[in-house]
């Protein structure tokens, strides 16, 4: 295909996480171009359901770019082109009949910087259910909002001020609000793009705890800069380097005995 394509190493072959859990997302020979820049080079991967998969790698390695392919957020960037096949539950997300709006309802996303809408806490969470028509009436909507806030572990902190603006919360609370907003539309997959990079250690610990709880019900994919975080929260780890997927494996195995020299160097902190 592409002479730059690097063959991905599996550690072990096949990883236990993929044997234990059914596959949720698959990618086959995915290439992403930003104008002339070849950002992802012939990537193939399978991501398990009801587990946490972490994408790690140095800056500019393509991990966030690939994450944004899964809910087709790259569509919103002018000059970005994606080739190859990505499936969710076996369904091709680039299929002409697929509605990207509905895809995104099934694949939620949490961003690097908390981005609550400049509305009340309640309205932030109610936004998704409203546009997708998920609630029958007002009480139903309230139920969804409260449940989502509870799932995101934020309800106890904000239950008395649901009408207060979401932007008034602390950074960590804002990020949990964004998680609540994402799960309010009842997605199956949650993509997290460095969700803790703008947070302090205590808020980070809180989010990591939450990720651990959420993986019982959701397929979670997290991009992270922190190797410790990947080691703490994920079942499967994928290492990206310069647009190539170098190595994929069970987290515990990969962090103790990586196969590839680059993975080893990155994990031991020799570059990054």
């Amino acid at each position: 295909m592409n002479d730059m394509t690097v063959k991905t190493i599996y550690t072990p072959e096949p990883p236990r996480a993929l044997q234990a859990k059914p596959p949720k997302i698959t990618a086959q020979d995915v290439n992403v171009y930003y104008g002339d820049k070849h950002a992802i080079k012939g990537l193939s991967i399978t991501i398990p359901d009801k587990a946490v998969s972490a994408f790690i790698g140095p800056s500019g390695c393509g991990k966030s770019t690939f994450l944004r392919c899964i809910n087709r957020m790259n569509d919103t960037i002018a000059g970005c082109r994606v080739t190859g096949k990505i499936t969710v539950d076996g369904y091709d997300i680039h299929d002409r009949d697929l509605d990207v709006v509905q895809l995104r309802a099934r694949v939620g996303m949490v961003f690097q910087k908390p981005n609550p809408f400049p509305k009340s806490i309640f309205e932030n969470v109610a936004y998704g259910p409203r546009i997708h028509g998920l609630s029958k009436d007002k009480t139903d909507l309230e139920r969804i909002v409260v449940e989502s806030l509870k799932k995101a572990g934020l309800f106890e902190e904000v239950k008395d001020r649901l009408a207060a603006p979401g932007t008034g919360l602390s950074g960590g609370q804002q990020q949990r609000l964004c998680i609540a907003r994402a799960i309010a539309v009842n997605p199956e997959i949650i993509l997290m793009d460095e969700p803790c990079s703008a947070l302090d250690p205590i808020a980070t610990a809180r989010i990591e705890e939450l990720i651990h709880e959420l993986k019982q019900n959701y397929c979670i994919v997290i991009v992270t800069h922190s190797m410790q975080q990947a080691a703490r929260v994920s079942d499967l780890t994928a290492f990206f380097h310069l647009g190539n997927l170098i190595e994929v494996g069970d987290t515990d195995v990969m962090f103790t005995s990586p196969q590839d020299k680059k993975t080893q160097d990155y994990i031991t902190g020799r570059f990054g």
């Binding site: 309802a105 099934r106 546009i131 997708h132 028509g133």
Partner: peptide, 11 residues
């Protein structure tokens, strides 16, 4: 999932 008429309306 969603009912088709709502999607139609939204589009």
């Amino acid at each position: 999932m969603n009912n088709a008429s709502l999607i139609k309306k939204r589009y």
